[in-house]
């Protein structure tokens, strides 16, 4: 094991895996739809409403890890296309700016942690892993000034205690053959959108079998070697995107009492279309070590904490605001039209 006290200075100590937090991207159509909902449907009702967002695993280079909401976010079912995946959202729209400001963020975070943990423990998320891709949107709409205040939470469980890089992240071509990669790519293309994670079981003779994530307990029982694959919204060469975090938490939970699964190979699957061609070469392979606290392997069911509040433009933990009066205020529009 690592003995950091004797290591020469140039050798880095264990490096903790970091997940790139989502950046929210809100279509102006979303704010128009919210305004209409507030006026026509919600009224003074402040209870949480179910909405949808989505993320893409095909972002262009150098872009942040985006999640989108738009005019379709209020429809009954999420609409996703060939390269986007659903995010299950809760909208809590407050009647006053004070209520928005003073809402108990810790209570909201703990509530989300509880729900995530229940989804994992009940096995529900094994059947539908996309249930772990969630957000809560707190909002206040100033209908007179056309100013929208909002704050996103993308809840992620802080579980296990840590995930540590065993080796440097590498591109997928260094771990899989071209044939294996096209096998994986074709599998992803056929997967229903609630399956944003899957498994590759490796047999002693080198054969690989791609399976749904619900087969994890069986694989662990048969003690087969396994690679965890997650559809990844990040484009970074070193980090998976935010949705990968809860999938790894679920994986860790199901292998917590099997020490031989403390080392896990993770594929961050990404694909991009350019000039009409599919490219998955920026997908990553990470070799990770799962680090538990003693309590986490003792079968105690302490609910983990959650994190995932979006920051302001200046990187602070706080709400954001957008002023659409120039585009939406009928008075201003009328003045401009003169």
């Amino acid at each position: 094991m690592e003995s950091t006290h004797t290591a020469p200075p140039e050798v880095r100590g264990p490096r903790v895996l970091q997940f790139e937090l989502f950046s929210s991207c809100i279509d102006s159509g979303f704010w128009s739809a919210l305004t209409r909902k507030k006026l026509d449907v919600y009224g003074l009702d402040e209870t949480a409403k179910s909405i949808h967002g989505y993320y893409s695993i095909g972002s262009a280079a150098f872009l942040p890890c985006f999640m989108n909401v738009d005019h379709a976010s209020f429809e009954a079912t999420p609409s996703t296309d060939s390269h986007t995946y659903p995010l299950h959202g809760k909208l809590q729209n407050f009647n006053t700016i004070e209520k928005f400001r003073d809402s108990d963020k810790q209570l909201i975070t703990d509530g989300e942690a509880n729900e995530l943990w229940n989804l994992i423990m009940s096995g529900e998320a094994l059947v539908n892993p996309s249930l772990l891709s969630r957000f809560t949107l707190l909002s206040f709409v100033d209908l007179k000034k056309y100013i929208y205040s909002y704050w996103f939470l993308f809840p992620a469980l802080v579980y296990p205690d840590a995930l540590v890089h065993e080796t440097e992240p590498r591109p997928i071509q260094e771990a899989f053959t071209g044939e294996e990669i096209s096998h994986i790519t074709n599998f992803v293309a056929k997967l229903p959108k609630e399956q944003n994670a899957f498994l590759i079981a490796h047999d002693a003779d080198g054969a690989m079998e791609i399976l749904l994530i619900r087969d994890l307990p069986l694989i662990v029982k048969d003690n087969r070697k396994v690679t965890l694959c997650v559809c990844d919204p990040s484009v970074r060469a070193d980090n998976p995107g935010w949705t990968v975090r809860n999938v790894l938490a679920m994986f860790a939970y199901h292998v917590r009492s099997s020490p031989e699964y403390r080392r896990v190979q993770l594929v961050c699957f990404r694909q991009r279309f350019r000039d009409g061609l599919r490219d998955v070469s920026h997908s990553l392979v990470l070799d990770l070590r799962i680090v538990f606290t003693p309590n986490q392997t003792m079968g105690q069911t302490l609910i983990p904490k959650a994190v995932g509040w979006e920051r302001t433009e200046k990187g602070k933990l706080g709400s954001r605001h957008v002023n659409l009066s120039a585009q939406m205020d009928p008075k201003k529009l009328a003045e401009q039209a003169v």
Binding site: Q18, E20, N239, W309, R311, L317
Partner: peptide, 20 residues
């Protein structure tokens, strides 16, 4: 932007990489 919250676990979570 005065609506900042302190004392959240987010402030020092080693597993979070903030957007670029």
């Amino acid at each position: 932007e005065d609506f900042l919250d302190s004392g959240m676990l987010d402030a020092n979570d080693p597993g979070t990489l903030l957007p670029t």
